[in-house]
Design a protein around this nucleic acid. Structure first.
Length: 475
RNA sequence: GGCCCCGUCGUCUAGUGGUCCAGGAUAUCUGGUUCUCAUCCAGAAGAUCGCGGGUUCGAAUCCCGCCGGGGUCACCA
């Protein structure tokens, strides 16, 4: 496949949400797959909607996901002269004219069209002798409506009649170009080969096609992405539905690999039954032709599962680097994890034990706190245990004393601990559900923890015995 | 209202005329894995393929109609 030059062209109006990121991802995958370039372009032609800091925020978001750009960010506001030059060409060719109407007059036309239950077309009101364009009025494209049939890599073959082509605005009265005009000039200037964009632009394509012709530009390949849907399965996912800033997922401790896997398989699959993909596999296997035409509901439970799958698949040492160290700008450990005498080796062992039950990283403190702090005895853990609550305090104490005297002799290796725990089972004639539960509760004071022998081995002899004593004293 | 897009288990999806009274994953439920949670394994339940016609020996797959949903008709992108 020839090298593709794709672009992601957000407007700096706030944070990036999953929909925008997925479009960026697909464009990036296409560029990587073909050995082409991925370009970041900022569509800042609407001064009123611009939000300070969003350009940096967008770059931060793409950076987190590893969607690095080869060129840009280029701001459209820096290219005003270029749009004016192309506009001038259109004026000279008689394909652009000044819009003589006031906003109020325009609004009246629209309302009339609405009342007549017909679509509004500006060209129905095209002035016979438009004033010369002074840069203070909007400049409109003089369309030459005709029917179009074109191909969209995702949507397939599309066609429309001439009735949908209209005289849209090229340059606004503030001197800035519209998206409709600027993106065509820019894509041409930047040699963009594939334009990926959301479904909301589909209806405008005939207009663009008409403009491409007037400009003498060969259109790029179009690929229209279906919407990502909210929980109702109908409308586009919105902030109201909980569409979050993509960087929020970083704060919650999601892996960029999991997010990318999730987004890529929301509306795309390779035709096999594979669900978990690495970044490299996505680059290799992605294809626009296999992108769904229908919208897909954003289901965070699927993201959660994928996150777990990626976390489990990671080398523990690598995961350790990701959840952060004391020196990191941010880490996900409970603060006590950095108290004396806990070191990297201890924390690494703890992480190894909780890795398979770790989903997003903000869960790490509740999963691991008891490895770093002697939690107070929680009587509820025994009182609510369906076997332990039947035993008297004397019986419980006796079991713990027996455990203690055996563990006192142990070297706390996994093998020795396992052997001793099994011996205790025989000696006390108790079921694991009783004995192991009791020791587990005594040594962790947590509703859930990794396997008993593993946990004891990591806690070590001193901490384990202190906690057993603590439990005995509380009975 | 015009134009355009879409319609397979709750969700993400496989499927392009027969191997599909529809496969996988997830979510849910059940059982197993010496203790809890998780993982893992096994199993259950879950879709008259939006509806109705037609073409065909045979249709989720092709054709027509309808219904439902969405997008668009901005000096926003």
């Amino acid at each position: 496949m020839k090298p593709a030059r794709t672009r992601f062209a957000p407007s700096p109006t706030g944070f990036l949400h999953v929909g925008g990121v997925r479009t960026a991802l697909f464009a990036w995958l296409l560029a990587k797959q073909t050995g082409g370039q991925f370009i970041l372009r900022i569509e800042d032609t609407d001064k009123a909607r611009e939000v300070a800091g969003s350009i940096e925020h967008i770059q931060e978001s793409l950076g987190w996901l590893g969607l690095t750009w080869d060129e840009g960010p280029t701001k459209q506001s820096d290219r005003l002269d270029i749009y004016k030059q192309w506009a001038q060409k259109l004026i000279e060719k008689g394909r652009a004219y000044a819009d003589p109407y006031s906003p109020e007059e325009l609004q009246a036309f629209r309302e009339q069209a609405r009342a007549d239950k017909r679509p509004f077309l500006f060209r129905d009101h095209r002035p016979e002798n438009p004033p010369e364009w002074d840069g203070k009025r909007p400049l409109r494209f003089k369309s030459e409506p005709r029917a179009y049939a074109w191909h969209d890599e995702v949507m397939g073959n599309l066609e429309t009649g001439p009735e949908v082509v209209d005289d849209f605005i090229l340059i606004k009265s503030d001197g800035y170009p519209t998206y409709n005009f600027a993106h065509i000039v820019d894509d041409n200037d930047m040699d963009i080969t594939h334009v990926l964009r959301g479904q909301e632009f589909l209806a405008s394509v005939p207009n663009y096609l008409n403009l491409y012709e007037a400009l003498g530009i060969t259109p790029p390949i179009f690929a229209t992405m279906p919407h990502i849907l909210g929980p109702d399965g109908k409308k586009k996912l919105s902030k109201r539905d909980g569409a979050k800033d993509i960087l929020d997922y970083r704060e919650e401790g999601y892996l960029p690999e999991a997010m990318i896997n999730f987004l890529a398989t929301l509306g795309w699959n390779d035709g096999s039954e594979q669900e978990v993909f690495s970044r490299e596999e996505l680059i290799e296997k992605f294809s626009l032709k296999r992108v769904q035409r229908n919208g897909a509901v954003f289901d965070e439970r699927r993201l959660l599962w994928l996150q777990g799958a990626h976390v489990r698949g990671l080398d523990t040492a690598k995961l350790y680097g990701i959840v952060g160290t004391k020196a990191s700008a941010a880490n996900f450990w409970p603060p006590e994890a950095f108290n004396e005498p806990f070191d990297d080796s201890y924390r690494l062992k703890v992480l190894g034990l909780v890795q398979e039950r770790l989903k997003f990283f903000t869960e790490l403190p509740e999963l691991t706190r008891f490895f770093f702090v002697d939690l107070p005895v929680n009587p509820e853990l025994i009182n609510s245990h369906k076997q332990l609550k039947k035993l008297s305090n004397g019986e419980l104490k006796d079991l713990l004393e027996q455990a203690k005297s055996s563990l006192l002799e142990s070297d706390f290796s996994i093998d020795d601990l396992t052997a001793r725990l099994n011996n205790l089972l025989e000696k006390t004639e108790q079921k694991p559900a009783v004995l192991f539960s009791l020791i587990r509760i005594a040594t962790t004071q947590a509703p859930a923890s990794p396997g008993l022998a593993d946990t004891l081995a990591v806690l070590g002899k001193d901490r384990s015995l202190v906690r057993i004593d603590q439990q005995i004293a509380a009975l």
